[in-house]
Design a binder for these strands. Structure first.
Lengths: 252, 252
DNA sequence: CGGAACGTTGAGCATAATCAACGACTGTGG
DNA sequence: CCACAGTCGTTGATTATGCTCAACGTTCCG
């Protein structure tokens, strides 16, 4: 056997007393414990890593166009993506936002119906769709995790159908801010909650089924009411009165 | 061994040369080849059948309330159900319609967030959620089928997000009729397409994120334009000009 | 410095909601 | 049998919500 200092790279994949180390690319991966990979042991992870490839996508670039062949899927490692449905005349609806740890791709289908675009510089771990599907047969825990996540996405989508179908502009904007707060809000020493808005006003409009102007006006309203605060044109927002925000989202 | 004419009932479950017959309840089931069960061989089907129970739900009755414990799931055998999300003040959005062969239930979750209601007298094959989840571990083909169906539902939900967020009333109503035509329309000898509307005007409103009056007016508009026809207040509808309907749904 | 994004604000308008009335049909009870 | 209430669908008048169009300020970058 080669000594480890002689073949340090090879060692990563070698089997020592039945144990396998994580592949080098995965070892310090930010989403090793939250993405689908978290369902895998090191041996399984190696198999997945073998078909995976790290890619960096610059902000604004489209990862996959609606209508393209569904040839790949990926885990989001870093950054933010939007998933959009569009009409022939250009109307656009953001049907999902993707954050680190999320899975993206249309499996078991030869064509995509949605467009995926990077909102920030984004790192993904990308797989050939067919290779991934093939591996899925041998990784039941990952398949189960994917099933659970898909079900969660479906629930989320249904929540948003209620928003888009039945809520007014103020309720939609307030709900969006609260959702963000629940996902990634940081409570400050003064009790306010700091929220980073991952998308522009135009993005919020496309997400909420509104126009830019309406979103801007509703944010201004909430600010005037002392419920939130933000610097003019800023993507950083502070929730000053969460209770009132919740009253708006869930009226009697 | 007992001769088969001595124990005819037992024979259904007996193993003859390694083969198992389908459980009696399943043998003439209308959805044996389309529901999740279609992924199972007779032996597996027996295991599923053992934990299943046939129920008939009268039209109008709620099968499961949002907020209830998620204690069961089911295959739809016959009839139509609606899945709704509601707000505290009564606003309602239909997030899905269920037809024979569809699966219903929130797995891997202790509480439901959606209400399921029978629109017609409905037969379902109902399972304890935990028992079903347990069985899923041993039925990989069924799990895979469930995964595919959940993904399909997610795609459908995202399509509807585009409708609810970005389409006007006429486009939503026209799109709804076309979707129904694709699902269950019957082409007539004269080239028209016969479509049965599975829900009332109020149901269509709740499905499309509109009001009853707006739905009624849009249907009248389509009738006046000679694109569809229906008797006043009728749930049967004929598409006279499918191309024009498609032009409405997908404008340049 | 000029242009392009982006966000805000105002004025006017269009779409769909609201409020209201009415006809058709169904089932119930007198 | 008929009167009645209840449900469902249609249609009209009015209103309100959010869209469209427009102008303007700021920031960023070539």
């Amino acid at each position: 056997m080669a000594r480890m200092d002689v073949l340090p790279v090879a060692r990563a994949y070698s089997d020592i007393a039945g144990l396998v180390a994580a592949p080098p690319r995965c070892r310090n991966c930010a989403v090793r414990d939250s993405a689908l990979c978290s369902s895998l042991d090191n041996r399984e992870l190696s198999a997945l890593s073998d078909i995976g490839r790290r890619r960096t996508i610059p902000a604004g670039q489209v990862v996959s166009w609606a209508g393209d062949a569904s040839s790949s899927c990926a885990n989001v490692v870093n950054g933010t993506l939007k998933v959009t449905a569009t009409m022939a005349d250009g109307r656009e609806q953001i049907v999902g936002l993707l954050f680190p740890g999320d899975f993206v791709g249309q499996l078991f289908s030869d064509e995509t119906s949605l467009t995926v675009t990077a909102l920030t510089d984004t790192d993904i771990c990308s797989y050939s769709r067919t290779a991934f599907e093939g591996l899925l047969d041998d990784l039941p825990r990952m398949e189960r995790m994917l099933l659970k996540r898909t079900m969660a996405s479906l629930n989320e989508a249904r929540d948003r159908m209620l928003s888009l179908g039945r809520k007014n502009a103020q309720e939609r904007v307030a709900g969006f801010i609260l959702d963000l707060a629940d996902r990634s809000g940081r409570e400050e020493h003064d009790g306010s909650i700091h929220v980073h808005l991952p998308i522009s006003r135009g993005g919020m409009a496309d997400y909420l089924g509104l126009t830019i102007e309406t979103v801007s006006r509703q944010l201004t309203n909430l600010k005037s009411a002392g419920i939130i605060s933000f610097a003019k044109g800023d993507r950083e927002c502070r929730i000053l009165d969460r209770d009132q925000l919740e009253d708006i989202v869930n009226p009697a």
